[in-house]
Design a protein around this nucleic acid. Structure first.
Lengths: 152, 152
DNA sequence: CGGTATCCTAAAAGATACTG
DNA sequence: CAGTATCTTTTAGGATACCG
């Protein structure tokens, strides 16, 4: 982690492996619109991971979910439109089920599917890891920002 | 995964737990600019995970890295500017080291730190999981799109 | 070669008003 | 209540030219 980069690793033979690497990565579902990409994009957007975690606690109606997300201190609040958008995307990928009781007005509720619950477990795993290393990350940021300020 | 939502879960007592939940989630580093959020956002953006994976294979110069990313079939190609941006963000958070040999022109290379390597392991774990379930996801999409088309 | 500056486009997200 | 429609703001990302 110091300045210990091994430059000897940079040689022509190494770079001829690039095409192999490329094929390897493509097999990792790295292309646009493939599940891997869209799922990562989902987890990385402003709300979906939060929604995933909250739905992990049970079944919620649309309006309730909106209020809860607003109370997390994480962000301001999610607009009705965006919540609908996110839930629909998660439903489309099979992470969420939408249940409608056709009264007037209809009662609509959302919950995780088994697949969604598994994804949530992976997400919490990663959250746990980042949390465990947050001091390291914060220190790196301070170091970087100081070094940058020094350069001026 | 069927229509098996337990609506009995929706009761007032349940919702009085919301504040507890909120505190719980805040402790999960769910706020803006906190490592958890920024790291997830990073993994979810267009290039960072790809960069993480490629750097997992060794040490790369800036231009080489750019060429490799362009060959992955994943996207078109990354602009010089964006690659610099992404690498800098990853360096700032301590996931990447930048090494400069001050020749003219200087040789600059990038590699993962130990922290970055750990993050890459988590990322590949998640990639593996999604890949293992991609058929499930694709089927859900088809089902959803058909149901939507039916509605018209 | 690596990086920066400038400009531009596309996509995500927010605000608000409206409907069944 | 849930969802849609419309408009505006914000942000990520790309194109290009230039510098040390």
């Amino acid at each position: 982690m110091k300045g210990a980069i091994d430059l000897s690793g940079i040689d022509p033979a190494f770079h001829q492996q690039v095409d192999l690497l490329a094929r390897d990565m493509s097999a990792h579902g790295v292309r646009r619109d493939e599940p891997v990409r869209t799922t990562f994009a989902m987890l990385g957007d402003r709300w979906s991971t939060l929604i995933l975690l909250v739905l992990g606690f049970g079944t919620w109606r649309h309006a309730e979910l909106r209020r809860v997300l607003g109370r997390l201190g994480a962000e301001e609040k999610i607009s009705q439109r965006v919540l609908t958008l996110k839930l629909r995307a998660m439903e489309r990928d099979g992470y969420v089920v939408r249940h409608v009781v056709p009264t007037v007005p209809p009662r609509v509720s959302y919950a995780l599917t088994d697949l969604g619950a598994e994804l949530r477990d992976h997400a919490t795993g990663l959250i746990g890891w980042v949390n465990a290393h947050q001091q390291e990350i914060r220190k790196a940021r301070v170091r970087f920002d100081l070094a940058e300020a020094d350069a001026d």
